[in-house]
Computed example of a mutant assay.
Amino acid sequence: MTKYENSLPIQLIKARDVAMQYFRPVLADNDLTEQQWRVLRVLESKGPTDFSTLSHETCILSPSLTGIISRLEKQGFVTKQKSPHDGRQFYIHITDKTQALVEQLRPQIEQQYSALKKTFGEKKYQQLSQLLTELIELQTK
């Protein structure tokens, strides 16, 4: 059996925690959770997104995402609109407040990416990113 230390799922969780150490202070300074930021970044990048796609893209289970969306809506960061084609489905939209926040945080987030790449090494960062992309793509095969 694979040694505990070489367990890929555990290594990935630990690596995520190390990477997030670079970003958590920026998010905390702006009263955002990691999950809220994930949702806002996906919406800012992809535009209005239906709930199930948003759940998949953010890796947040539906019950948890429901609460996150409710809190973001109360804070004025997102709005919900029913699909014109299916009344059971709704799309999440960002607001101007979100767009302004993302623009404000973009330089700080990029600075943290630079710090991570400097510490880890740009080449190793690119290699790791490519390998993780390939691993993720196994899901569609």
Rank of each mutant, 00 (worst) to 15 (best):
G47T: 00
V18P: 14
I13H: 07
S114V: 11
I10R: 05
A28R: 13
Q89Y: 05
L12S: 08
S7D: 05
G87F: 01
Y22W: 11
L132N: 12
R38T: 00
K46N: 10
L116M: 07
P63H: 04
L128K: 15
Q111L: 11
P9E: 02
K14I: 11
T98M: 01
L40A: 03
K124A: 14
L40G: 04
F77H: 02
F51M: 01
N6L: 09
S62R: 10
I92G: 02
K80V: 06
E57D: 09
I60C: 00
I60Q: 01
K124D: 07
S114M: 14
E103H: 12
H93G: 04
Y125D: 12
P63M: 03
K123M: 10
T79S: 00
K124R: 15
Q130Y: 10
P84H: 11
L72D: 07
R38V: 00
V39A: 03
Y113D: 14
K118S: 14
R71P: 03
Q108P: 05
R16V: 12
L12V: 08
Q111H: 12
T66A: 02
V42G: 07
Y4L: 13
V102M: 02
N30I: 01
Q81P: 01
C59S: 13
R106G: 07
Q130W: 09
V18W: 14
K141P: 05
Y4H: 11
D50I: 04
L72G: 03
L131P: 15
D96N: 09
K141S: 06
D29T: 07
L101T: 12
L101Q: 07
S55D: 05
Q99F: 13
V42E: 04
A28C: 13
A100S: 05
L27W: 03
L32G: 04
A19Q: 15
T140M: 09
Q81T: 11
T33S: 05
A19T: 13
L105A: 11
E103L: 10
Q35R: 08
T53E: 13
V39E: 00
Y113G: 12
D96G: 11
I10V: 05
L135T: 03
S70G: 06
N6Y: 09
I13T: 12
I94T: 06
A15C: 05
G67N: 01
K46C: 12
F120D: 13
S45L: 09
P25E: 02
K124W: 06
L132G: 11
V42M: 08
G121F: 03
F51Q: 02
H93R: 05
Y22S: 05
L61R: 14
Q35D: 08
L65P: 06
E134V: 11
E57L: 09
T98Y: 01
A15Y: 08
T33N: 04
S83P: 01
S83L: 01
H85C: 10
E134I: 09
S64Q: 15
Q99A: 15
H85Q: 14
E73F: 02
R106A: 12
D29L: 08
S7A: 02
I13D: 03
Q89E: 12
D86S: 06
L54I: 03
